[in-house]
């Protein structure tokens, strides 16, 4: 029995997939705690799609894919800011417009040279087939992001909560915003390999949303979110070995399952305890 459970670890590609997924899942979960609070959740989705042309181009030119992705992400963010400030279009329209354009360009580039660029890997991700070189890139990105977040998470929280106050205590608001979007682009890039461009959004929303139902303190929310994200991602990659299913799909499904549990049974904000509180209120009246 035990030898069966340990079997995935005897394959280096599985071991790799498990801990890389956990690392990336934890990073995305960290950012999800912020995104969700600002109503920016779809920004993550937009960025994940927007990096696709960068990745395709990088593969085409045999450059590290992270560099291409990163520039595409930054370019997309800037384009959104530009279109938004220059027109009266609403934010959702601007985001939708920019990211679909980028994604379409990505598909075009990939279709020009289908052998160099495996578009399926970019869109759906395939952590089981990640190359050693790509693993290295993902790990570097994730570790640097975690370090920066570890140092600046309180400042970012203060900024997200009250921008004017953040300014009044001497924080460099604009620099922090740029920092956050840089981290977000980097995380989207790292997550591409794990779950693909389409499911990145799940990893960038669900863990934070689940943790939000479980605590009223931001610090705890971040810790819970990272644990949930890393745990489900590692477990998803591991279990995909036995179930013979797509790791990306399994990871996000696991996260949703945990969200549903929290949604129903969270001690204070869950459906069940809220119903009970309402009933108790009625009885006392």
């Amino acid at each position: 029995m035990l030898s069966l459970l340990l079997e995935p670890f005897s394959y280096s590609y599985m071991t790799n997939a498990i801990w890389v997924s956990a690392l990336v899942g934890g990073l995305c979960a960290f950012l999800s705690a912020y995104l969700m609070l600002k109503g920016w959740s779809l920004m993550g989705d937009a960025l994940a799609h927007s990096v696709v042309p960068g990745v395709a181009l990088a593969y085409l030119l045999a450059l590290p894919y992270a560099i291409g992705a990163f520039f595409a992400g930054m370019l997309a963010t800037l384009s959104m800011a530009l279109v938004k400030s220059a027109t009266k279009l609403r934010e959702d329209a601007v985001i939708g417009l920019v990211f679909t354009t980028f994604f379409a360009v990505g598909l075009l580039i990939a279709s020009v040279n289908p052998t160099a660029v495996d578009i399926q890997t970019i869109v759906l991700g395939n952590i089981l087939a990640i190359s050693g070189e790509d693993t290295f890139q993902v790990v570097i990105i994730s570790v640097v992001c975690f370090l920066v977040l570890g140092l600046k998470w309180k400042d970012l929280a203060a900024l997200f909560f009250d921008e004017v106050h953040a300014r009044s205590i001497g924080l460099s608001v604009n620099l922090l915003k740029i920092l956050f979007f840089t981290l977000l682009s980097a995380a989207a890039v790292a997550a591409l390999q794990t779950v693909g461009a389409i499911l990145v959004i799940g990893m960038l929303i669900t863990p934070g949303a689940t943790a939000y139902l479980l605590t009223d303190r931001f610090g705890k929310l971040v810790v819970l979110s990272v644990l949930l994200g890393a745990g489900t991602s590692g477990l998803g990659a591991y279990a995909s070995y036995f179930l013979d299913v797509s790791p990306g799909g399994l990871i996000v499904s696991l996260q949703t399952a945990l969200f549903l549990l929290a949604f129903l049974f969270a001690p204070k904000h869950g459906l069940v305890s809220q119903k009970r509180a309402i009933r108790a209120e009625r009885v006392t009246i």
């Binding site: 609070l37 309180k154 400042d155 203060a158 997200f160 909560f161 009250d162 106050h165 205590i169 924080l171 939000y212 605590t215 009223d216 303190r217 931001f218 929310l221």
Partner: peptide
């Protein structure tokens, strides 16, 4: 944002940052 997951003492503490 009154739904922000933050306690009263945490808000006041940000004044000390």
């Amino acid at each position: 944002d009154w739904n922000f997951p933050v306690l009263v003492e945490d808000v006041v503490m940000t004044g000390r940052y």
